[in-house]
């Protein structure tokens, strides 16, 4: 390891110019708008905004719903990724294309599509309503479902990539030692792709936290039950752009803090394993 580092150092640590210039442009392009928010933010309003009970409510709802959406995505998305990467079933490529549709679908359309299936008049929703008296739209459950719909493909794509990159010979070895496929999955595959799962989970959580279009369409907007931070930000933008900027910064700060905490707890460990 240190020999490799030494070799690298002897070749010089400078970034090659053809990489340096576009990388710098990319970084500036991505970071400057954030810097713009920071510069424009009315910092004096921050304490008053944070004390606003509606803000705390929206923030709590955002964190809880995004975490639940990530949990559902992990529970269902990892097996789906395995099927896409490992199974020999026909139509896998079609399935892969279909399950990544939410990545390109405008989220508002996704929200309408959810209505058509899970709404009061939807194919499944009508049955739920008639049989159990359960209606999903305009509830916190609808928020979690909308976020899961939009965010799970990020997890599936990440985990499938990790599975494809993983060395399948370990699994073969486990099989020759008598492990069945379920045991191989739990004891060999899962630890092998853990970093990919964590990375996918973080992406999924981040996307769920920022979800706007499908949520406001399918779950509506009501403080306390369905108004997440992005919805609060959008509506604040209609009345008071400064307040919207402050709210965005609150969301950004909390999410960055969470991700950094996660990094220390989980990513460093799985990073070491990788």
């Amino acid at each position: 390891m240190s020999a490799v580092r030494a070799a690298r150092r002897s070749r010089g640590t400078g970034v090659p110019l053809p990489l340096m210039v576009p990388a710098a442009i990319a970084a500036a392009f991505l970071i400057l708008p954030l810097a713009g928010l920071l510069v424009r933010a009315p910092w004096g309003d921050l304490p008053a905004q944070l004390a606003e009970p509606a803000v705390g409510e929206a923030l709590r709802l955002s964190l809880v719903s995004a975490t639940l959406a990530t949990a559902v995505s992990l529970l269902l998305g990892v097996p789906l990724a395995w099927v896409l990467a490992r199974s020999q079933a026909r139509g896998r490529s079609v399935l892969r294309a279909l399950v990544t549709v939410p990545l390109v679908l405008p989220p508002v359309v996704g929200g309408v599509a959810l209505f058509l299936v899970l709404g009061r008049q939807g194919i499944v929703g009508r049955w739920l309503d008639e049989t159990f008296g359960v209606t999903i739209p305009f509830t916190t459950t609808a928020v979690v479902l909308a976020q899961t719909f939009v965010a799970m493909p990020f997890l599936v794509v990440s985990v499938e990539g990790a599975l494809r990159a993983a060395d399948a010979r370990f699994e073969d070895a486990a099989a020759t030692l008598g492990a069945d496929r379920w045991m191989t999955f739990r004891r060999v595959t899962l630890p092998l792709v853990a970093p990919g799962i964590v990375a996918g989970g973080v992406l999924c959580w981040a996307r769920a936290l920022g979800e706007f279009g499908a949520t406001i369409t399918f779950a509506g907007n009501f403080p306390g039950t369905t108004q997440t931070m992005p919805l609060a930000v959008y509506l604040a933008l209609q009345r008071d752009p400064d307040a919207a900027i402050v709210l965005s910064l609150v969301l950004l700060t909390v999410s960055l803090a969470t991700l950094l905490l996660l990094r220390d707890r989980w990513l460093s460990r799985s990073g070491a394993a990788a």
């Binding site: 954030l34 989220p107 992406l203 981040a206 996307r207 936290l209 920022g210 979800e211 706007f212 279009g213 931070m229 992005p230 930000v233 959008y234 933008l237 919207a244 965005s248 969301l251 950004l252 999410s255």
Partner: peptide, 8 residues
């Protein structure tokens, strides 16, 4: 991602 996909 979370910052960029938020609003319209």
């Amino acid at each position: 991602v979370l910052a960029g996909c938020g609003g319209t």
